[in-house]
Amino acid sequence: MMTLRPMIEADLAAVLRIEQACFPRAWTREHFLAEIGSERGTPVVAEFNGQVAGYLCLSVLLDEAEILDVAVDPALQGRGIGVQLMQWACAEALRQGAALLRLEVRATSIPAITLYERFGFVRSGLRKAYYEQGIDALLMDKNLIEEDVDAV
């Protein structure tokens, strides 16, 4: 069984383990603490069978929202956890008054890009050699619609 709940400091050991397994240049404990304490931030964790299986950090400012970080434990990928995190992000951004949701992703991360496109994100730009080893960052946007709330 999977549930979503606000991220708390006690989650950070598990969150950091997932972050380090998923990203060569991982966020630090301080990054996540800043999101937990942020006025604009809404970080959540996905629990699967009682363990932290993934997380998403959402930031909303006026009518724009951004997914700052999202990951699922590699051992638990393919179980719909990423889908549920994305459904939540779309609905929560809309509930907080955003009309546009943005994110950036490694241009080489085909599974993630495929998931985002499934949710209606479109490619809106490119940051050349943004990531380690000269990997480009693909910028993606989604216009939020009322159906995004109904999907949750």
Rank of each mutant, 00 (worst) to 15 (best):
R79P: 00
I110V: 13
A71G: 06
V44I: 15
M86L: 14
G41A: 14
V83E: 08
P24T: 13
V152N: 11
Y131L: 07
S59R: 08
A26S: 10
L62C: 08
Q20W: 02
D63T: 09
D11P: 03
Y116K: 06
W27K: 04
L103E: 04
V60L: 05
A46S: 10
C90F: 01
C90K: 00
D148K: 09
E92Y: 04
L139P: 11
L85P: 02
E64H: 01
F121L: 02
G80A: 07
G37D: 02
E9A: 13
K128T: 09
G97L: 09
A46C: 14
A75K: 08
Q20P: 00
D63M: 08
L115F: 04
Q20C: 08
V72D: 04
E35H: 10
E47D: 12
S124N: 06
R127A: 06
R40Y: 14
Q20H: 14
G50H: 02
L103G: 02
L101D: 06
V70M: 15
I8P: 00
V15Q: 00
M140T: 13
E9Q: 11
Y116W: 06
I67S: 02
K142I: 13
G54A: 06
A99I: 03
L101M: 07
L144V: 13
L16A: 09
E146A: 15
E147H: 11
Q84K: 08
L103P: 01
Y116F: 14
I113S: 03
F23S: 11
E147Q: 15
G120T: 12
L139W: 13
I18V: 14
C22Q: 09
L68R: 09
I110C: 01
H31L: 02
I135K: 12
L62A: 14
T3M: 10
N143Q: 15
L62F: 12
G134S: 10
L61N: 02
S109Q: 08
T108A: 13
N143E: 15
V70Y: 01
R17T: 15
R40T: 13
K142C: 14
A71R: 04
V15E: 00
T108F: 02
L62K: 05
H31T: 07
P111F: 01
V15D: 00
D69H: 00
L58D: 06
D150P: 02
C90W: 01
M1P: 10
Q77E: 10
E66T: 07
A46E: 03
P6K: 11
E92D: 05
E47R: 10
R17H: 12
A89E: 05
D141F: 13
V70S: 05
E35R: 11
E132I: 09
M7R: 07
G134Q: 09
T108R: 11
K142W: 12
L4P: 07
Q96I: 01
G37C: 04
F23N: 14
E92M: 03
L144D: 12
E47S: 08
Y116E: 07
E104F: 01
G41Y: 12
P6T: 03
